[in-house]
Write a protein that binds this DNA or RNA. Structure first.
Lengths: 184, 184
DNA sequence: CTGTACGTACAGTTTTTTCTGTACGTACTT
DNA sequence: AAGTACGTACAGAAAAAACTGTACGTACAG
């Protein structure tokens, strides 16, 4: 035994866990495996090397790596004399976490807020409209309350994301305290 | 115009946004639409009413509602004299957020931590093994460092989830200061 | 300018997921 | 006890997503 096999097995298990984990967050297992593979590389990889590493088509590598780029989980890297594109896994998982959820959540937040505000502005007038039946008005009132509190929630979520982006969250939950949690 | 149509359109837009948003988080659009529909109901619905509301099969309603139950986004409700199961949307989105991510993240965290610790315990011995080539040892050392810092990150994430679950997060990012009376 | 290496758009295929209808077990009603 | 209403397991159908190979545009080399 020269340790190569052992290392390989140990890595494989972690890559597997990473990809399953990412899958939980709505990312394909293949894309997760690609990230995992890149994570354990010593240096950046070309598309052809990834293809080799995962035994998949180059096309897949191209699209997968693009997804990872959009999530900022990998970065494109420059190396003198190398014509092929090189990609490197982002190694700082705190940063990865922040980017991932900032990107995902912001998108959802603005989508929802604008839909809700638009609907709110359509429902509001019903309350003062003579032609609208009392029963409908009652429903409108309830809906307005629901939408108002939903928007309030999204405002909170936005502030939470702000605290991720600005890293202020680490003042509240400090990084690598490295002491085990007292409970659980 | 009696306002009914307007209300319907306004709701439909929000339901659409909600389901797209949930889809972003890895939940089917259908399940998202079901949650949205339940959210705007005045009271709890039976499976047959959902089926009617969404124009889908009862089987689908059964499985979708189960997913929502697991995510604690709906609750089963009991009403005297009613034999059918009744389901009500959880209206507090702060709570929904907390439950959703607590459930999802905890699963991923423990999965990853145990995989990493196991791999770590396999890699560590390589360092002191005479038969392992220096080159492999070098890689092992790098991997150990990576895994150690990854585990540290997961510990942080665990503490973040703790702060969600215990609601301490609201001390750091306060809920909306609007009308609603808050109980501390 | 011509030839070559590279990344990716696109169309077709395979795989996975979602959805439906039937059938069955359970529990309540009479 | 039989009859009925209900929810869901299961298998197959339909839809969606992931994956691949070909073909093409671009950039650089000679």
């Amino acid at each position: 035994m020269n340790g190569e096999k052992e290392l390989e097995i140990a890595r494989e298990r972690v890559i597997d866990a990473i990809s399953k984990n990412m899958n939980l967050y709505g990312v394909t297992e293949s894309i997760g495996r690609l990230y995992g593979a890149l994570y354990f590389q010593e240096g950046p990889l070309t598309l052809d090397e990834m293809k080799e590493e995962l035994g998949m088509s180059k096309t897949s590598m191209s699209t997968s790596v693009r997804s990872l780029l959009e999530l900022k989980m990998v970065g494109k890297v420059w190396k003198k004399g190398v014509r092929k594109d090189l990609y490197l896994a982002e190694a700082d998982w705190y940063q990865t976490f922040i980017d991932f959820f900032t990107i995902k959540w912001r998108a959802g937040i603005s989508l929802n807020i604008s839909a809700m505000q638009k609907s709110l502005s359509e429902i509001q007038p019903l309350l003062n409209n003579e032609q609208v039946e009392p029963h409908i008005k009652e429903q409108a009132k309830i809906d307005i309350e629901k939408l108002t509190s939903a928007i309030e929630y999204y405002d909170w979520l936005n502030r939470l994301v702000d605290s991720f982006e600005s890293k202020e969250i680490f003042e509240f939950i400090p990084k690598g305290e490295n002491k085990k949690t007292e409970k659980s």
